[in-house]
């Protein structure tokens, strides 16, 4: 059986859940293998085995942390050349969409972005995508070269499977061109103890209706009571009430959680672009005409400063009993 290469998402050895989702999806098309760029593969090996990785190709060294996207694309291109896999799967983050683009150019293959599901049909890999703000569902396939596909986190529930996850170091000599964009400094904004936005099963987002930076305490409390990540609309990040990295939408992150709660958010098209594939959507807004209600499975028309504290109290009661 051919291999299916999954690019691991990790932060220094801690593997992100989306990697297990990609391994779960990869199984239907061949032997899942992991491409690991950077440090931490030994630490991660047992977890990757639990989710059925047959092999882990490891490329570490400065190159993989010191430059923008090109090194990961070179690693994947060399694996494609070596093992002719059935596909290369990546998590659909802003960074990886770029890695996928560079890889596609290198190996002259078709690239599909933002899949929300993958299936096999007549020997082809069919990607499901949701376009035009969710109005149209498309099934697409790659018809030239090795399919390169980015998949949104939370597209599938990760399922364990046995794998050897044999570590196999690969030597990569980065080209000079790959070193053109050098990272000279990293500025990390703390996230605290909450789950990561892109991966979280529940996201609680606040909008302009929250009124102020202090008002976001309420959003954080609600998020914490549900074990959720916090998100924000652009109105909020523009006003500086909450950092930009929490922005959901066209120019923020795209999330697809089990539950998305929009609190004081109107539901502009650019916001919807980042959350409309969420499984269940709950909205609280005082304006009954707010477009967010068109998407909501459950909505409360009311003042969030009344509704949310009461909801918190109810959640407290229920978890206490």
């Amino acid at each position: 059986m051919s291999e299916v290469v999954v690019l691991a998402e990790h932060a220094g050895g801690a593997v992100k859940k989306v990697t297990f989702e990609l391994l779960t999806l990869a199984r239907q098309f061949g032997d899942p293998v992991v491409a690991w760029a950077g440090e931490g593969a030994e630490e991660a090996q047992p977890r990757l085995a639990e989710y059925g990785a047959a092999k882990v190709y490891v490329a570490d060294g400065d190159g993989f942390t010191g430059y923008v996207t090109a090194p990961a694309a070179e690693l994947l291109a060399q694996l494609v050349e070596r093992t002719s896999p059935a596909a290369v799967l990546l998590a659909a983050t802003g960074q990886n969409k770029e890695v996928a683009g560079r890889l596609a150019v290198k190996i002259n293959s078709g690239v599909l972005a933002d899949a929300v599901g993958l299936a096999a049909q007549d020997g082809k890999i069919i990607a499901e995508q949701s376009i035009f703000g969710g109005a149209t569902t498309v099934h697409s396939a790659v018809k030239q070269g090795t399919p390169v596909i980015t998949v949104r986190p939370n597209s599938v529930a990760p399922e364990p499977a046995q794998g050897a996850a044999a570590l196999e170091p690969v030597q990569i000599t980065l080209s000079e061109a790959a070193k053109g964009a050098k990272i000279t400094e990293r500025v990390v904004q703390e996230r605290g103890e909450r789950p990561e936005l892109a991966e979280a099963a529940i996201v609680v987002s606040g909008g302009r209706g929250v009124g102020s930076a202090e008002g976001f305490d309420l959003i954080e409390k609600l998020a914490d009571s549900l074990g959720a990540a916090v998100g924000a609309s652009r109105a909020v990040t523009d006003a500086g009430w909450y950092p930009h990295k929490f922005q959901v939408g066209q120019t923020g992150q795209t999330v697809s959680p089990q539950l998305y709660m929009a609190i004081g958010i109107s539901g502009a098209i650019q916001h919807r672009a980042g959350m409309q594939t969420s499984k269940t959507i709950v909205a609280v807004n005082k304006d009954p005409e707010a477009p967010i209600f068109e998407l909501a499975d459950f909505g409360v028309v009311g003042d969030l400063f009344q509704v949310v504290p009461q909801l918190l109290e109810e959640i407290g009661k229920r978890s206490g009993s």
């Binding site: 596609a104 790659v142 009954p288 068109e294 998407l295 459950f298 909505g299 009311g302 009461q310 909801l311």
Partner: peptide
């Protein structure tokens, strides 16, 4: 093109959700 659309469909309109007005019991 290196990619092709196999099929597509308008997404069925989302089932209209339940929208309630807060009468002091919204939470």
């Amino acid at each position: 093109a290196a990619t092709e659309v196999v099929d597509f469909a308008d997404r069925p309109p989302r089932q209209a959700g339940t929208i309630v007005k807060d009468e002091g019991d919204g939470g």
